[in-house]
């Protein structure tokens, strides 16, 4: 709590605040970061292996291999979520499993599983993109804004 706000508290409230702070469980920030780093890195290494697979066995170049790799990674994450493996991994790795594109697959399928009892249309269909929808919306919108800024900078700013 900010110092300004703490001054306005009554002595009893301040005492309770101190009491709460003493007993609060400390977050293992460093440990979480190390876990996220290794698991996130492992997911990225698997992605790299998949893209090499597509390049080696199919006619994909470095430029075009991104799309099938992302689709495969999301599909694997969806399967693992359905089998209940990804949830355990997410509990262990935290952001390391949520930030890569596999986290998107997990968000879609976990929402679908959660609302399955409400029916296929209103339950699964209506709630599937509850979390992932915002990711798609913000991704598309921020790409539009960045492209707009780049276009303005290239056309009138003389960049590029």
């Amino acid at each position: 709590m900010a110092n300004e706000k703490r001054k306005n508290l009554t002595p009893v409230q301040q005492e309770y605040h101190q009491f709460e702070q003493d007993r609060e469980t400390k977050r293992p920030v460093l440990k979480n970061c190390v876990r996220a780093f290794f698991v996130g890195g492992l997911i990225c290494a698997i992605g790299q292996a998949i893209s090499y697979f597509y390049m080696y066995f199919f006619d994909f170049t470095e430029k075009t291999v991104g799309n099938p790799t992302v689709a495969t990674m999301v599909f694997i994450a969806m399967l693992l979520t359905g089998f209940g493996v990804y949830d355990r991994l997410a509990q262990f790795a935290g952001a390391g499993s949520a930030v890569p594109v596999t986290g998107f697959g997990n968000a879609v399928i976990s929402a679908a599983i959660e609302h399955r009892t409400e029916g296929f249309v209103l339950g699964v269909g209506g709630n599937m993109f509850k979390l992932a929808g915002s990711v798609i919306l913000f991704g598309t919108f921020s790409a539009f804004v960045v492209a707009l800024i780049k276009t303005i900078a290239v056309k009138w700013g003389g960049l590029g």
């Binding site: 390049m55 080696y56 994909f60 170049t61 470095e62």
Partner: peptide, 14 residues
């Protein structure tokens, strides 16, 4: 002088 096709792509390299 001839037409040059240059690429840094790994697949093209292979």
């Amino acid at each position: 002088g001839k037409k040059v096709i240059a690429s840094h792509d790994l697949k093209i390299f292979w």
